[in-house]
């Protein structure tokens, strides 16, 4: 006997993601999900973002890691509240894990903007909707320009591609044109920003993007 099902495999996760979205809308919070490989520069990007925007936007960070609280400690050192999720051996954050963190941060800090730094991985985090307003793909020049084509799901889904460690490009064979062409092939609407978090190069565009995300949600709130 054959049975037609037509039901999503991750429907339980999607229900939690929807609850997260409702929670975010209720409190007027923008949530951005940062996804990239281990060592791509996700935490350093956040540190520089906090240094530049921490006084104008009330932020909080949800840190996802297999083990240790090292990243949360780095964020808290910058004066921003961080909630560390240690997944043990799971390679992604799911919407239920984020829901617990979200409730606690809303209760303690009530931020305008939450960054979720997902587990360092280009595959699994892209499969899971956590209720975010947008996925931010982070790729460093030391990883190689072929990663966009090799991991298409993340790059096709991302609102923006942030290419990091720009100052190191001359020491690598990373071809920016190849990476950009591959990204545009997969993602017609996604923006691309190149930055160097240590020197601050290219940060004006990234900061504009983050501020716009927060502003768009504030405007949307006004029309509710």
């Amino acid at each position: 006997m054959k049975i037609n099902v037509m039901d999503k495999l991750l429907s339980a996760n999607d229900a939690w993601a929807e609850e997260n979205r409702l929670l975010l809308r209720k409190h007027g919070i923008t949530m951005l999900n940062i996804i990239g490989s281990p060592g791509a520069g996700k935490t350093t990007l956040l540190e520089q973002t906090i240094a530049l925007l921490g006084k104008t936007i009330k932020m909080a960070v949800i840190e996802g890691d297999i083990a240790t609280t090292k990243d949360a400690a780095r964020i808290e050192k910058m004066g921003v509240a961080a909630y560390q999720i240690n997944t043990g051996n799971a390679c992604h954050l799911d919407a239920h894990l984020v829901n617990t963190a979200l409730k606690e941060l809303i209760n303690d800090v009530n931020p305008e903007l939450i960054f979720v730094e997902n587990i360092g991985n280009l595959v699994c985090p892209a499969e899971f909707d956590i209720g975010e307003d947008g996925k931010i793909a982070v790729l460093s020049v030391t990883e190689g320009d072929d990663k966009v084509e090799k991991y298409p799901l993340l790059f096709s889904e991302a609102e923006i591609l942030v290419i990091t460690k720009l100052k190191l490009i001359e020491h690598t064979n990373f071809n920016l044109a190849i990476a950009l062409a591959a990204f545009k092939q997969l993602n017609k609407k996604g923006e691309v920003i190149t930055v160097d978090s240590c020197s601050g190069e290219g940060f004006a565009s990234w900061i504009d993007f983050v501020q716009d995300c927060v502003l768009v949600h504030k405007i949307a709130e006004c029309f509710k």
């Binding site: 037609n4 039901d7 991750l10 909707d129 799901l153 092939q185």
Partner: peptide
């Protein structure tokens, strides 16, 4: 390359990536 087949605009966006779902089950009674 994502160009609209009718108006040839490049202003097209990926609308659905088809999240994985179970289509059919074949079961034993």
């Amino acid at each position: 390359e994502g160009l609209c087949p009718i108006c040839h605009s490049c202003r097209s966006v990926v609308e659905a990536r088809r999240a994985p779902y179970i289509h059919k089950l074949e079961v034993e009674d």
